[in-house]
Computed example of a mutant assay.
Amino acid sequence: MKLFTGLSAFSITPTDASGRVDTAALARLLERISAARADSIGLLGSTGGYAFLSRHERQRAVESAMACVGGKIPVIVGVGALRTDEAQAHARDARKAGANGLLLAPMSYTPLTDEEVFQHILAVAEAGELPLCIYNNPSTTRFTFTDDLIVRLASAPNIVAVKMPLPTHGNVKAEITRLRRRTPDGFAIGYSGDWGAADALLAGCDAWYSVIAGLLPSEAVALTRAAQAGDAREVERLDQAFQPLWSLFKEFGSFRVMYAIADALGLCRAAPPRPILPLPPTDMPRVKDALDRILI
């Protein structure tokens, strides 16, 4: 299976209050993903809080991950940074540690133009010398990739995939068809936004970049495999079980909810990085109820 296809499970990155990565806890989470036979691990994505970590801690996280699961499952590393030279350094660090691929969102403080994003991604792809996935994540970056920009980048060396948000207008199948018509053969089109994963998978996307698979990998694998088999009825059944959790993701943001899930399942005790606050204790019963509906 190609790198940017199937189920990519995005783990949280447990840290202490000072931002030091708990590599033992991270290893436990990654081993669960590998054991569930997900298709890849997404390390230091948005769920992994890459923007809150220093370069040194990112290096420790990647080195720990590769020591734990390297060779067992492909690892895709997020390398986004405000400055292009910093993102290039993260890309080189990931390659040196043995990562299999890269994920890059155009972080910014000042709004970026299409040309600035094009040059930024091109430079990081060249520095990383690994297959790179464009991360179109306007909810956090406030930058939305146009079809034209994706098409332009898709022809550049090392850029082989795009991670898309769920469409706000139109349907996902039409978007996939439109992008495939304009991008090179083999360019992988995947989606994030867990509550729309069932529709995107049944519509024929190449990958589900999954938040929840970072902590519930077996359940996310089951949904993915049912969709890949074209079993719409089973996909609907599984997706219905996830609905209370999708509601929590929409209400509180998946980043906060994932830390609550990790705590509820006893997988690790870590708080999200400040200024992000954990879910209030009064909402934990809803998390536990949602988990009871899902767990295999």
Rank of each mutant, 00 (worst) to 15 (best):
H169L: 15
A125R: 03
D114L: 03
K2R: 10
V69E: 02
L29Y: 01
V117S: 01
T113R: 15
A222Q: 13
A198L: 14
R286E: 10
P106Q: 02
A264V: 13
A97C: 06
G70Q: 03
P165D: 04
T140C: 08
L248V: 10
E63N: 00
F249T: 02
P275Y: 15
C205L: 11
E126Q: 09
K173R: 09
L30E: 13
S8D: 04
R28W: 15
W195C: 07
R256F: 08
N136V: 07
A270Y: 10
R28Y: 15
D263C: 08
T84N: 02
Q88I: 01
F255C: 00
E219M: 03
R92Q: 06
Y109E: 04
P184E: 14
R60L: 06
A89W: 04
S46I: 03
D289V: 06
K173P: 01
R55N: 07
W246N: 06
P217T: 14
R256T: 05
L201T: 12
P184Y: 05
G128E: 03
S210L: 13
V162K: 01
A227E: 08
P272L: 13
N136K: 00
G6M: 05
R58D: 07
M66Q: 05
L245F: 02
F4C: 11
A227L: 13
G193H: 05
A161Q: 08
V162S: 11
A200Q: 04
A123E: 12
K163V: 05
I121Q: 12
P278G: 03
R274P: 13
A61K: 04
D292T: 10
D194P: 07
P275M: 15
G71L: 09
A89V: 14
R269L: 14
A222E: 14
S247E: 14
R182Q: 12
I76C: 04
T5K: 00
K173Q: 09
D93E: 02
E57L: 04
L43E: 04
V75I: 05
